[in-house]
Design a protein around this nucleic acid. Sequence first.
DNA 1: GCCAACGTTGGC
DNA 2: GCCAACGTTGGC
Length: 154
Amino acid sequence: VAYWLMKSEPDVFSIDALHASPKRTTHWDGVRNYQARNFMRDGMKNGDEVFFYHSNCEVPAIVGIAKVVREAYPDHTAFDPDDPHFDPKSKPEAPAWLMVDIQFVRKLKRPVTLQELKAQPRLQSMALVRKGNRLSVMSVSDEEWQTVLEMERA
DNA sequence: GCCAACGTTGGC
DNA sequence: GCCAACGTTGGC
């Protein structure tokens, strides 16, 4: 399996909201960045594991783990003029934007905060801690994944 | 609320 | 194709 990290603002959709969703599963709609879309389209496979990250909040942190349960398919919110993520460039016959479904696996025993991640020498090259990174979907290496799980237990 | 980083848009 | 203007993200 491959590993990923997805950002969500907890005020909009938190790890608890994922847990409370039907089948503990949600459509990851609204991605409107080509690099993030390409990760979903070309990289994310069923069974891949995902760190669920809370962004733009009091304590930004990795808070849980989810897994991919449906591979990339058209993001229908791009077709809906009334949806905030509407994009007239995306047509049902030629969808510009895609989404995946992810399912709750577990919460971490404790949030592993951005502050801790930045301070961890073994994570200096992790995409999340690099300055100015605004990607909402990014890949995580095996080493990075294991390091975060060790930090969770520490 | 501020602002740095960065992607996108559109005039030329 | 360049680049200024603008919008968004997201930490602080």
